[in-house]
């Protein structure tokens, strides 16, 4: 297996790892967002709480949760490693750089966007994952009720919206970039991948951002 380790530790291999873990996290976002969108049924959280109950108790989902954390940690580790290594490849910086002339700012800022997302994620896990997994709160105090309570704080709402904006830009580059790293650049598929990537990067973060906003303004009860 030394051959595999060697390949995965090459510059191309690190990118492949970034892409695979990234696509895995994207698939998680889709599940997470669809489930949370149940709150928009405006049924007092009945459907959402049932979904949350299922996700919290189903053994397959609970196993996937461990895989998810592993994937997330790998994505963070690989990203940090690439960021540090890539930075060291230009020890003397240019005095003047016109980056906007040849690339999008968010494609050049994936490390920064990722760091913002990580900070947001720590807060987010503290709010909801810690609540539903590590305390016995689910019986009388539902996850839905917890959302209602957390999103009464306007500062939290603003932080969540900013987190979603970071997510949107991270995805806008990351989604199609992952396919390129895997080697999937083809005139027949690439335009479609780019379109789906752009739609995904707008719709998913917008749906997420709508949740705290909807609670804060009492648009759902």
């Amino acid at each position: 297996m030394a051959w595999l380790a060697k390949s995965l530790n090459s510059s191309l291999g690190k990118k492949l790892l970034m892409a695979i873990t990234g696509l895995f996290l994207i698939s998680f976002l889709l599940v997470h967002c669809s489930l949370n969108a149940l709150i928009f049924l405006n049924d007092g959280g009945v459907a959402f709480n049932e979904g949350a109950e299922f996700m919290g108790t189903n053994p397959i989902i609970r196993t996937m949760e461990i895989v998810l954390f592993a994937g997330l940690l790998l994505h963070i580790y690989d990203g940090l490693r690439l960021w540090l290594e890539n930075k060291s490849k230009r020890p003397v910086a240019y005095a003047k750089v016109d980056g906007a002339a040849n690339s999008k700012w968010y494609s050049r800022s994936m490390g920064l966007l990722g760091t913002l997302l990580l900070l947001f994620l720590i807060l987010h896990l503290k709010h909801f994952w810690y609540f539903s997994r590590l305390t016995e709160g689910l019986e009388d105090h539902t996850l839905y009720a917890e959302m209602q309570a957390v999103f009464m704080n306007p500062v939290v709402v603003v932080v969540y919206v900013l987190g979603c904006i970071s997510l949107g830009y991270h995805l806008l580059h990351g989604f199609s970039s992952a396919f390129q790293s895997i080697g999937w650049n083809h005139p027949k598929y690439t335009p479609t991948i780019k379109t789906i990537g752009a739609i995904f990067s707008i719709v998913i973060p917008a749906a997420f951002a709508a949740m705290p906003i909807a609670f804060y303004f009492h648009l759902i009860h």
Binding site: L12, L82, N86, S107, G183, W184
Partner: peptide, 30 residues
């Protein structure tokens, strides 16, 4: 360094080399 797919290379290349080649190299390599 390692590629992060910003596309700056393709935009600045005087000979218009496409980053499709990078995807091909990735396929060849893996």
């Amino acid at each position: 360094g390692a590629c992060s797919n910003t596309g700056a290379c393709e935009a600045e290349c005087p000979k218009g080399i496409s980053i499709e080649n990078i995807a091909r190299m990735n396929r060849e390599y893996f």
